[in-house]
Design a protein around this nucleic acid. Sequence first.
DNA 1: ATAGGGTTAG
Length: 745
Amino acid sequence: MKSKLTSIAEAGNLVFSQNLRITHLSKAGRIEEAVRVFEKMTRRNTVTWNSMISGYAKNGRVGDARRHFDEMPAKNLVSWNTMLAGYLHNDLVEDAANLFDRMPKRDLFSWTLMITCYSRVGDLGKAMQLFQKLPDKSDPVCWNAMIAGYAKNKQFLDARKLFDEMPVKDLISYNSMLAGYTQNEEMRLASDFFEQIPERDVVSWNLMIEGFVQVGDLNMAGKVFGQIPNPNVVSWVTMLSAFARNARVDDARRLFDVMPVRNVVAWNAMITGYVQNLRIEEGYQLFLKMPERNSISWTTMIDGFVRVGLLHKARELLEKMPYKNVAAQTAVIYGYVRSVRLDDARLLFDRIGCRDTVCWNTMISGYAQSGRMDDAMELMLKMPKKDVVSWNILIAGYCQTGEMSKAVEVFDRMVKKNLVSWNSLVSGFTQNGFYMDALRYFLSMNREGMKPDHATFACVLSACANLAALQAGGQLHQLTLKNGHLNNLFVGNGLIALYSKCGRVIEAKQMFDEIIWVDIISWNSLIAGYAINGHGKQAIQLFHEMEADGLRPDEITFVGVLSACSHAGLIDKGVEIFHSMTSEYSIAPVSEHYSCMVDLLGRAGRVEEAYKLVSEMPIEANAGTWGALLGASRIHCNLELAKTAAEKLLEAEPYKTSNYVTLSNIHAEAGRWDEVERIRKLMKERGVIKQPGCSWIEVNNKVHAFFADDPTQPRLSEVCETLKRLTVKMRMIGHLPEFDTGLVD
DNA sequence: ATAGGGTTAG
């Protein structure tokens, strides 16, 4: 018979070892197994409960952690601190703050946790407030937390101030400060500081490696790596992933193969390397071979399959994943969203128990990108905590559906806007043709102290290009130079488009030669620029240069090239190129190409041939094509064909006033007043209203807009005077102005 | 055995 005391001791030992097991399993990411151990235990103590709270929180299941915290029989200070740490690890600052306020007792752990919480999310004001309230500041831990906070938020000068003030420094203080330099690309300061550290440990060395990697100096990183007295697994992984991130996967693999100890992080880093360089099969082989997987291994692999478009493999893996975290499920949702399988995405989304902001945003952006704004709004209203990204998605969505007033409404109601919010709105205006508004908002964003980036410039440059606002565009050009955005492809292309559309082909060519990166869009803009400004031969010359450069022309290229042929009167060349599209480049002509061809044949007087081309088109002719045919037949006085084209044009665009006017004019010229009357009636029945004609001109960097029949125009009389003078002048040199007969008899 | 400050993987 065992004595009672021995039984108690043995039971205690059992609890002790089971607690240890729970801790071990949770740290390895095997939380379900930990739960099983916990559930089988007949006796539990406070440490058991605390370990479970910690385990859940570390595996992203804060809700479960909190449930255990609330249900546990007797909490001690460690329980409170563990829960607080749980919120910290999951970036739930508000929950942490609430808990902190309710704590019956606080110690240095509690204060440090709360300070770290604030500084991790960048709220250094609140962190500092707490730090100042801290009763006893003799321990370096809190100082270190503050220094790390400043360092992570790029305020290494503030970090340095604290560092110099603190009474007792330990190695972590030095490393925290060093991190302030290395994480902010201040490698000169970092190197100097590194030399001053009295006793460096492997973390100090690792920080130096990562710092050099950050500034792109892999040579120095490798050199430092070679000097470390006792590199640890972090040193190896840092170096390995540096290679992987710089497309040197094979170098990474060489390190992986020779490193002395490979933990799960090392395996994950290697898999990430393969996956990010789209070598999915090699990544998957490693995934299958690795001795132990955690949630990151699964998520990386799933994300990899999504990247290469193997959605079914991604989904299969997700179903096999033991505990599905939000990140993995969101990766698959993202995959569905990207392939516009919104219903599959939604089904998965609805299944997820504990969604985070990224998950909500992914689903909402899926709807928004497809223009399903009602669905997007429905989710938005249900979403518990919306961030800037959520609102930005809505703005982008409304821009996409062309509902700019709604986009502006969302924008105006946002309390915290970021650069993306501004850019979304500006790009929305540009994409929907509201170029003036794009420029207006560009000015306000500058006034409000928001610094535009390359995306902003790309948008406003395109706006200027479409407005042919050369002066404003030129100023933007200067700004991009000043802000160093000229090396950006989109900005470069914006500038080429600007000068091309403003008729400045020489400047456009200069831009083309100056920018570092050119792509097919750069070539297309330049070719089109030469084409529409009457330099057809040079445009075609450029087309050949582009090919010699090894770039394959696309649909857009041929629009430019064909219009170049048309403008330069190179009829046979145009016909030849048009045919080569299908025979040599396997590009099926679309209506824009047919319009060019009609225009081209029309200019040569080959109107009937143009009509034949249109009637034999394999795709349906659009308004542009009929418009081109109409123009050609009117110039060559082919009244019958003009009538046909005008009727078709009217069919294609029944709400455009000018089409009625044109058709009516044709009949008027032929003296068919009955037809004129019929069209007038048709217009009335369909409720077509004449849009006021509008034009604008840029003078001294101000755009002046003119509307037809607008008596409020400030300098109307002067304008009319000038017009009259010009008309007289034109008559004198023999030009007969063509007056719009309109719908008058 | 459970809670805090510095480095690596999604």
